[in-house]
């Protein structure tokens, strides 16, 4: 008999941008008819009544909530539904994501992981990339949302052959009961860059003097920096409690030295005391730095080295002879076994000691080349002798 029906569905086929972290979904069906056998239903006669009163499905979706109902009943419905949820329906509620600002290298995650720290795979959501021959499904991690994996994870090392220029991504959402396809609101374009330069080698430079804190090191990497790229290095020192940030833990270079061997280097300021060190580095495009406590440092490779002190300047000295006559001032001192770092020359200074602490210069700095020297023309007095090497280290 007289028949009417209606759906009240909060969200029908389509994609919706929702300015909230939850959304209310409702499917409500109702039908009514006059079950008059004169119209061929063979049921209780002549009475109009409403069926499927009430809400069939309702839920408040949070991120990653989904719902699927596949209707398998009569279609078309000829004599009142047997199933008040006479609808095939599939929905998923996702957090909006955005492509990273700046450039990514092949090792970096394309999108940040969702704030719950869990990797989510979404059924019937498939990521596509713009290949050399048009849109194509990505080879790995197709259903991951957000796509918190790297270019290498998705494509492997041959990713450069898969597409040209920047990486363009979108996802499609499908359901088994329809050929309709929904594409993501956004097409995400990800700019790519080379990863941090590969490590080449590291050489440590000892302190100049045994007691000075002016060691250094040279870090060599295998490629030059791009024009707007800088190398940021963070240095760790081994304290008695273990490795921690060195007192001056960072240096930045936007201009590496091109070494004769084809590598590119940065030489650290000569301000390091002897000890054990570790260095980590990464590059940054554009302005600003990367704080030494930024979490990105934790995952980077570290390179260890040791700065040693230079050899202490040492010598022996003895009186060779006193004055031969009264006030002839021909006394001699022999200085021998003079030791320092190799390839250094030496100077001595001779003081006359007056009282306990007062000295006056008797012979000013005089250089000598070998590891021994005889100091002549000394008068009868108390003498004090001091040596320095050509780097200014004293003994």
């Amino acid at each position: 008999g007289d028949y009417r029906n209606g759906y009240s569905v909060t969200h029908s086929t389509g994609r919706y941008q929702i300015n909230s972290n939850s959304v209310y979904i409702k499917i409500d069906y109702q039908e009514g008819y006059n079950d008059d056998p004169g119209y061929g239903c063979n049921g209780p006669c002549g009475q109009y009544s409403e069926m499927c009163n009430g809400v069939e499905y309702e839920s408040t979706f949070n991120h990653f909530s989904s719902y699927e109902n596949i209707y398998s009943g009569e279609d078309p419905i000829t004599c009142g539904t047997q199933d008040c949820l006479a609808i095939s329906y599939k929905a998923v509620f996702l957090p909006s994501i955005s492509a990273p600002v700046g450039k990514l290298c092949e090792k970096e995650q394309l999108f940040a992981q969702y704030s719950d720290g869990v990797n989510h795979n979404v059924n019937d959501l498939v990521w596509e990339f713009y290949s050399n021959t048009g849109w194509k499904e990505i080879p790995n991690h197709k259903n991951r949302y957000p796509l918190n994996v790297s270019l290498l994870d998705v494509f492997g090392a041959s990713w450069r052959t898969q597409f040209t220029g920047n990486l363009q991504l979108r996802f499609k959402y499908t359901a088994p009961f329809t050929s309709d396809v929904l594409y993501s609101f956004s097409t995400y374009t990800i700019s790519l860059t080379e990863c941090s330069p590969e490590f080449d080698s590291l050489s440590a430079f000892k302190t100049k003097c045994n007691y000075s804190e002016d060691g250094s090191f040279k870090l060599k990497v295998k490629r030059d920096l791009d024009s707007n790229e800088k190398l940021i290095m963070t240095l760790y020192y081994q304290y008695s409690t273990g490795f921690d940030l060195a007192p001056n833990p960072q240096e930045t270079s936007s201009n590496l030295f091109n070494e004769p061997d084809g590598s590119y280097s940065h030489t650290w300021s000569e301000n390091l005391p002897s000890g054990n060190y570790k260095i980590k580095y990464q590059t940054k495009i554009g302005s600003g730095g990367i704080s030494p406590t930024d979490p990105t440092w934790t995952t980077l490779s570290e390179y260890s080295f040791t700065i040693t002190n230079a050899r202490r300047v040492e010598f022996s000295a003895e009186k060779l002879n006193d004055e031969s006559c009264f006030e002839v001032e021909d006394g001699k001192i022999r200085v021998y076994n003079v030791i320092s770092e190799s390839n250094r020359s030496f100077s001595y200074i001779v003081y006359e000691v007056q009282g306990t602490n007062t000295v006056t210069v008797l012979k000013n700095w005089t250089s000598f080349a070998s590891n021994n020297v005889i100091i002549n023309n000394l008068k009868k007095t108390r003498l004090r002798l001091k040596l320095k090497d050509s780097q200014g280290c004293f003994a």
Binding site: N21, F93, L94, Y173
Partner: peptide, 17 residues
């Protein structure tokens, strides 16, 4: 900010003879 994706298909109801 969130996104909702929905696909739905309804059977063809008849509206009476």
């Amino acid at each position: 900010q969130s996104e909702l994706y929905v696909l739905s298909v309804r059977p063809q109801n008849i509206t009476g003879p």
